[in-house]
Every structure is written in structure tokens, then in C-alpha cells.
Design a protein around this nucleic acid. Structure first.
Lengths: 349, 349
DNA sequence: TTGTAGGCGTTATCAG
DNA sequence: CTGATAACGCCTACAA
């Protein structure tokens, strides 16, 4: 189209429109380049991506599998992926798998039938069955958020995150601790739990671990179970902020003062954590960065590389839920005197 | 590929693999059909979507624009879109625009350059500037969540939602009411606010309206402004659950009892609303359904139709934040006696 | 019922 | 430096 209008050959047009700046210089005369660029702009020409993909056998598409996009953690990871993908000229499909193996396979096939150049898998299970299949089929992919087997992955160091919480709890004098460990198939929960458990064990202390769904209701129910144990935990670590919020509610419902009678820490430092009535101690897990790095890693895999996995460093954010009087929300008019007021004369047990 | 293996002509293969059941029956002999199907399965043949799109000038791709995917409301709408799209054999791209007009245009162009067959726009501004441009360019699109101009849209009736809250507040005896109205360019906040304001006006009462960001911090700050007014509001309606959570915090920080001294209602009935320590009254807005319906509407538009917009019905869910003693979280061991305990002997003002 | 041929818009190769 | 040509895989009108 550009070619006809400008009276130039198609191949020249292609060379000008696609080549790197200096390649263009070598490929066509200055006038021809100007002419072609002019017509392309005037007709606002866009190369047809389907024709291009057909010819080059590259779609510049990547598929992304997540357990659930309405989980803010994964949504934020995906935002990172999407940002980075746009910068690389790639487009992304996201799909929910609800952590169900059959859906993982079905969605992956769907993506593959769309001829994606690679896959970012955010819902790997620790048994690695599904990802091993993908690897056996030589499909370029990376894992994000969770790791499995020794496939390339970008994660945030959950083991270290768990230790950070353990150190904080120990320094605060907690010797009876409970962990709400999330789903048993997710490396995130496994690592975070192991980090805390190991650190406590080195101090000669055993902690109670219960599993739960990754949401508020799951955390509430799991915390109830922990609070029934004797001696009762004085600190609870939930491997997810939403579970931690549920735990806060359970503590309150049990007639105890969250933050005072029972310290509660979460994970991921969700935007809500700092804004809760009782601000929540949490471990920042650099979710957006994980997405950005995962896409970079995938690009490297797609280019035939065998890049090393990346493990980002977590950061503990201490707030009032584990340190009464600390970590008040900025901009509050009342200052550190909030907590006593929030918890005044609540009957014990 | 299938053709060579089976020793059949390519066009016959195409006919068998694409045609509707009875078209196939008319197009090839039973044996040939079986033969072709057999080989297709054995080679797990997938038609190349790029070749198909090139030939048919249809990509089966739809672009989705949202303000921000890490907002659970839009994430849930998108889940609905994605579910429905998969059922229609369509694939979707989502992109964040952060409610910035330049990003809206840039992302729409990106989608268009990918040759999407249509667009679902979840971030329309009430001035309709951007969507009018799209319409002028004859691009098939529908709006979701927000409406603008008289372009086809799927929304939940915010005006009615606002009225539902107003009725509930009036029945509870609130005569001094504040509204946290969200961003002024979003039809959602505008309609919800208008519904409440109109209903109160019909009762001869004026309400205070303040704008804010749609997040927790915005709601906190806006509530502080409302609570400084005299006479002080006894009820606050935030057009978004996250803003409502911020408002709950502000009420508490002001030394008042949320739910008792100041009723707080939110909007969207986010999963968190029912799980908060003080369960939040909210208006359910059928976000997932909106996504599903929006995709159906887009399909109709892409087929050349001019379908009418859809307005789904909202539902008020009353909980303890506006009705102390009501709406306790199911499964709690303490029953309706929670609220007095939560708010005991907090100093007034 | 089956086969043939042309073209969708690119890019790569080869020749001028 | 520029132009012609083939091929990517699919669909469809037309012919047999």
C-alpha cells in the first residue's frame, strides 16, 4: 500500500520500515527513506502482525497463567509483566487457572494454540508435574512468584522472609508462635513457613503450623484453631495479608487484643496493610518487580539462553499489629496513642 | 500437513476441520471425514491462527482497557470478560491506563495495531472525549463499569444503588449525611452520589459531598474533612469499599465509634467487606456479571448490531457498619455482641 | 464428493 | 542501492 502510493518497491519499504537506523542508512538512499517514511505516516501504515507472524514464525505473544487475577498479589505481578512486555514490544494473554491442574493444562494448550512464543507460569505447584511436562515439550517458559523443580523462576525469597518475621518475633519475646501456612502446594507458603520454623528451631522452640486457604475466611478459621491451643500463641504469622486480616478478626472475636495480646504479621505488604485500622506488620515481596524480572527472564529463555533463576530480597515492615505504638499510619492526627484507645477495657478471653 | 499424511486434498481437510457438523456431512464422505479427523488428532494439528487471521481479516482478539488491574473491582470485571471470551473462542489483551487520557489513546492504538476485532473500555471518562473518537473511527467497542455519552455499555445502576443507601440511612434516622464521591470523571461515583443526594433532597435534606481518590488513603482523608463539618455527619456513604475502609479508620482516629456514632457504607461488596473486623454495609454491583455481559454486547456490536446498553440491578447488603448488631460474619463464636465490645469506652471527640 | 489455484501482507533470497 | 519473486498456512471460488 505504501509501496504503490510512493512508487517504490515493497521490499525497499520493508527494509526502511523494519531495519535498525544504520541498517536503513545502508539500505536506501536518503530521499527514498524520506519518501517512504512520509507515505507511511500519511497513510498511518501499521504492519499486519498476522502476516508478519506467519512469515517469521514468531508471534511476539506471551501467555501468562495465574491462579486468580482478582488476587491483588498476582494482579500486581501481572502489572509488572505487562509493563515490561509493552517495553519489549510483546503482548500478553492472562488466564486464571484457579490452581486446578486440569485448567492449567487447558489454558496452556489454549495459549499454545494461539502460538505464543513463551509462557509465564504463576501458579506452579510444588510437585512440578505440569511444569515438567512443559519442559519436556521444549516450550520456553519461566515461573514467577512460585518456584518448582529447578526450572527458571523469579521469586521473592520466602525463606528469608520467614526468618525476618522470626527474628522480629523473637526479639519481641514471643516464645509461643503459630503459623498460618496457606495452601500446601504453593512454594510461597512452604518457604515462608520453613524460614520461620527453622529460625525458631535453632532457638530451641517448636512452633504450631496450620494450613488454610489464602484468603480472609481461611485465615480467620485457621487462627481460631491456633487460638484454641494451650499454651495459646502470643504471635501469629500468616503467609498472606488477607489471611492475616482474617486472623486479626479471629483474635478480636476471641476477646483478645490484636497487637497486644496476640501479635499478627502478614506477607506481601498489600496496600491495605498500612491502611488498616490496626496497621499490619508485613513482609514486602516486590511483586511488581517480580513481574518485570520474570518477563526479562522469559525473553532470555526465548532467545535460547539458560538464565539462572532470580530470588529477590524481601523486607520486613513493622507496624502496630506486632509492635504497639509503632508504625502508625502517616498523616493521622492522633499519633502513637491510637492503640491503647482501640483496645481499651476489652474483656480478656 | 494433515493432508499429505492422509493423502487427501488440503481443501477437503479445511472443509472438514472448519465446517459446522452438517456442513461437513455435505462436504465429504464419511470415510474421508474419519480419516482426516484421525490424522488431525494423531498429529495434534492446530490451525495456524495467523494464517487464518491473515486470510479472513479477523483476529478473534479483543482489547480491554482498565484503569488498573490491581483494583479488585476491575480485576473481577475482567475475569468475567475473560471467562466469556474463552467460551466465544476469543482471546483478550488487558491493559492499564491509570485513567490517563494519553495512556488510553496509546494503549488503544497498541491494541488496534495488533488488529483486535473490538475493544472493551472500562475506564471511560464522563466527558466521553476518547470514546467519541473511537466511535468516529467506527471501531467496534463497548463500555463496561462506567458509561459515557450514549455508547453501548454494561453498568450496574449506580443511581439506584445510591438510592438504596439513602433509604437505608433515612430509615435508620440519619439526617446529617456525608458522601465520599470518588473521582469526578467517573460515572460510577457520579451516579451513586446523585442517587443518594436526590433521595435525600426529596426528603428536604441536603447532604455534604466531597471528592477523593478511589483508594483507602483517599477515603481516610475525605472522611476527615467530612467529620470536621458541623453539625457532624452521623452517616457516611463512600462510593467504593476501599474508600469506606479508609473512612472507618478516620472515624476511629477521630475518637468516634464506627457503626454507632457514625454509620459507614461502601460500594461493590468486595470480598473483604464481609470479613472486616467490623463488617461493612455495601452495595453489591455484580462485577463479574458485568464483564460477562460486556463481552456478549461486544460480540453483538462486532456482528454489526446496535444493541441497547444494559444496566444491572444493584443490591444493598446491610452489615454492622450501619446497623450495629446486624450482619455479623457467619461462623463467629461471639454473635451480635461484638460491636459494643469493639467500641467500649472510647472517648467521644 | 474432490481437486486446483490464487491471494491475504510480510520477509528473505537472489538478481540486477 | 533497488527490484522481482517465492513462501509462510489458510480459505474460498471455481472447476472437474
Amino acid at each position: 500500500m505504501v509501496a504503490e502510493s510512493a512508487g517504490v518497491d515493497v521490499s525497499t519499504v520493508s527494509r526502511v520500515l523494519n531495519g535498525s537506523p544504520d541498517a536503513v542508512a545502508r539500505a536506501a538512499s536518503t530521499e527514498t527513506v524520506a519518501l517512504i517514511r512520509d507515505w507511511a505516516a500519511r497513510l498511518d501504515y501499521r504492519p499486519n502482525p498476522h502476516a508478519k507472524s506467519l512469515r517469521t514464525a514468531r508471534s511476539n505473544l506471551v501467555g501468562v497463567l495465574v491462579p486468580r487475577l482478582s488476587d491483588i498479589v498476582l494482579a500486581t505481578v501481572y502489572e509488572g509483566i505487562e509493563d515490561a512486555a509493552a517495553r519489549h514490544g510483546l503482548a500478553t494473554f492472562v488466564m486464571n487457572t484457579y490452581d486446578r491442574p486440569d485448567e492449567q493444562r487447558a489454558r496452556a494448550e489454549l495459549a499454545l494454540s494461539r502460538r505464543v512464543d513463551g509462557l509465564i507460569i504463576g501458579d506452579a505447584h510444588s510437585d512440578a508435574a505440569f511444569v515438567d511436562e512443559m519442559a519436556a515439550r521444549k516450550i520456553p517458559f519461566v515461573l514467577v512468584s512460585r518456584h518448582a523443580g529447578d526450572h527458571p523462576s523469579v521469586t521473592c525469597d520466602g525463606y528469608r522472609g520467614g526468618r525476618l518475621v522470626a527474628e522480629h518475633f523473637l526479639q519481641s519475646g514471643h516464645e509461643k508462635v503459630g503459623v498460618i501456612a496457606g495452601e500446601p502446594f504453593a512454594s510461597t507458603g512452604i518457604d515462608r513457613t520453613a524460614g520461620l520454623v527453622d529460625h525458631y528451631r535453632q532457638a530451641g522452640i517448636e512452633v504450631s503450623v496450620v494450613h488454610s486457604a489464602f484468603d480472609t475466611a481461611g485465615g480467620h478459621e485457621a487462627a481460631e484453631r491456633l487460638l484454641r491451643r494451650r499454651p495459646r500463641p502470643t504471635a501469629v504469622f500468616a503467609v498472606n495479608d488477607f489471611a492475616a486480616i482474617g486472623a486479626l478478626g479471629a483474635v478480636r472475636d476471641a476477646g483478645l487484643r490484636p497487637g497486644e495480646d496476640v501479635a499478627v504479621a502478614g506477607y506481601n505488604d498489600t496496600p491495605l496493610a498500612s491502611e488498616l485500622p490496626l496497621p499490619l506488620t508485613s513482609v514486602r515481596s516486590r511483586t511488581h518487580d517480580m513481574g518485570v524480572r520474570a518477563l526479562a527472564l522469559l525473553v532470555s529463555v526465548m532467545e535460547g539462553g539458560e538464565p539462572a533463576s532470580e530470588r529477590l530480597d524481601p523486607e520486613l515492615i513493622v507496624r502496630a499489629s506486632t509492635a504497639p505504638g509503632h508504625g502508625r499510619r502517616a498523616g493521622s492526627p492522633t499519633g502513637p496513642r491510637l492503640e491503647p484507645r482501640m483496645t481499651a477495657v476489652r474483656p480478656r478471653l
